[in-house]
Design a protein around this nucleic acid. Structure first.
Lengths: 210, 210, 210, 210
DNA sequence: CAATAATCGAGACGGTACGTCACGTCTTCTT
DNA sequence: AAGAAGACGTGACGTACCGTCTCGATTATTG
């Protein structure tokens, strides 16, 4: 059966050796309709109230078709989300680390405050009780961006804007953790202005300079 | 009806104006047994798989008794958790802001990594699709601690350790956001050592000093 | 406890020996209100959907007050109904058996077709699965009338209108069974005209006279 | 949806127009097991104490399967009963109306006094507060027999045993009403001998012949 | 006049069954 | 072989009543 976890972690399904598998091929229409319905219903109801029954009905698809290709709700949501992943969260390269990171953080703020924010919240929220879901979120959404973030910070180091021994993960977890704190828990005060203040705090420090 | 959310946000149930409410009084035994079973089953199964059916059975209580006093699973968990809320997360007063905050953060790290961490994760996770639950978490768990945090930071300001114009919420969201980033999303690297490094980063800044 | 079956079969509760029992006496208001609510709700919902919860609420009475005085729903309904029993179903004495019985049967038809018919149907219907209820119906409603019917038929015999060896129960069961057949099962065609035709059939016979 | 009352009144379920309905077909095993359990439990407990929960458990069937096909307990019982309906209540053709009707009435007496009597009582009793149930009883149990009864009486008319203007429904309601009076209300005295006496009374009349 | 006693209303209690919903699996015909 | 359709057994949902209980308050008789 193809619904092993490989299909969640990588989008590879084809054996890609000349021969095609016999029988009716998988329907691309069904796959797309399921993704579309998943994302739409996820925004409306949140992860725990999202039912596969409803997805199948909404996508005009048999329930068995969903179960044939995805082992559980989490992997379906993770895949649907990552397919809709955006180019708008790429890091720019302006010549200034602070600008590069600040610009990207503001893009993220826009995403989180928009309608896709509900999906991100659903993924992280659902992930608290579903290890595979949070894993998928990390692998498919967070890590690709973090790779770029590393490069951006390293450019800053090589330009002398940041110290050579800077702990990249620590820095990024603190910068973005500040955003997620307001997004997930405080659920208020998440704005471009806040990004500027977080940047200033983390780069310059809270303590009084002597 | 007592099952409004007021009863979750404040522990006040008694009208306490001379007259008692008529009818058989609420059973304290039942309330305690329900709390106990809730916390126990929550650790065993996680929030989404926690069923009120199971709680009632485990507590030797009628299902209706649960529904009579709590409008949903979320509020029940929130209340049960906050009743077990800890003295161990108080802020000390050592004479140094950095020490005070650092010590408290390390206590929090210990809680999050321990068995009560599952409950915190369940509350924040469940709260992503239940506004009342995250509200309850903020009001009952987070805010009491934050009040102490404000005082601790203000002591630091008055002692000259921190600048007078310090944005308290910004500072705290960044410090604790860094922890929650690793607790909720990265799910790794949460340690006393990490607390020290976050403290150093936020207080002294990431940027190279001239 | 006073709720033995004596209290259903006879309305006698008072010991009626000079001494009154100590303590607060039973409330007549409550008893009447319960009877009233019982009959009203019985018409609205039928016996199986009649709940003691609803009766108590409707009568502004504690549930325990109902349970204190009646052992079950059946006895409550039977008593409430028999208290409302009518003078309008007495047998007249016109000098003709056929007239006497016909007039009474037409009165019964009017009762069955009216709003009290629902109660009779509820009693007989409920009695099919509750021996005490059908027993109460027989004892309290049917038998008092049948006693009068016997006398009416016997008057007819002594006047020579009916044969001396007439089986009274057989005759009455057939006359009234014909009505109840249309009331309970066929639920149509129950009218004064039908009474006349039943009378003619039973008194004169269906077979062709030679 | 198939669970309309049409499916109770007529046994027709198949559309039987060339095409089958799509999807997994209804399980005949489940249907039979539910019927069997219904009849068995009905005899044991009576209609009001018969729970669909218990039927489903006894039949090793999901509760939803019961609710999918029957709108309520009443229709389930009615259908289960009518499926077990008997050939033993057919009218014979002996050449004498009185014999034909008498024989059939005695068969009915045997049914009512036997274990299937409880079911008949449950149907008529339950039907007093459920119009659809009594309707189903009439349509499925009573009317088929009454059609035969009409023919039997008409044979008697054509043979000159009965007058040409005989009111068939009146006659049958009176004959059978007499039996049901003793079955439903008096709950005593229902015997073959009683049938003979009812026959004599209704055919020859109660009044004294001149 | 106080003490005693049974009632009253109110309403919470542990239960049971309700009828619904979604689960994940299955069985059919069609593509 | 995959598709849709939809029935299947399972089990939790939240609700309604069951009959019992525990309250304070009320209303009588008894000492």
């Amino acid at each position: 059966m193809p619904q092993t976890y490989a299909s969640v972690e990588s989008a590879e399904e084809k054996p890609s050796n000349g021969k095609r598998t016999p029988g009716r091929p998988r329907s691309e229409d069904a796959r797309k309709a399921i993704h579309r319905s998943t994302l739409r219903l996820l925004q409306e109801t949140g992860f725990p109230d999202l039912s596969i029954e409803a997805i199948a009905a909404d996508a005009d698809v048999g329930k068995a078709t969903v179960y044939r290709w995805w082992p559980n709700k989490a992997s379906l949501v993770a895949e649907a989300f990552s397919r809709s992943a955006d180019e708008e969260l790429r890091f720019p390269n302006t010549g200034s680390v602070r600008d590069d990171v600040g610009i990207q953080m503001k893009h993220l703020v826009r995403v989180l405050r928009g309608r896709r924010g509900r999906i991100v919240a659903a993924l992280i929220g659902g992930g608290q009780s579903d290890p595979e879901l949070i894993q998928a979120f990390r692998d498919r959404f967070m890590m690709p961006r973090r790779q770029e973030a590393y490069q951006t910070l390293r450019r800053g180091i090589s330009r002398g804007e940041l110290p050579e021994d800077l702990d990249l993960d620590l820095t990024l977890d603190t910068l973005y953790g500040s955003l997620y704190m307001r997004f997930l828990i405080r659920q208020t005060g998440l704005s471009d202005d806040y990004v500027d203040k977080v940047m200033a705090l983390v780069f310059d420090g809270a303590a009084k300079r002597e």
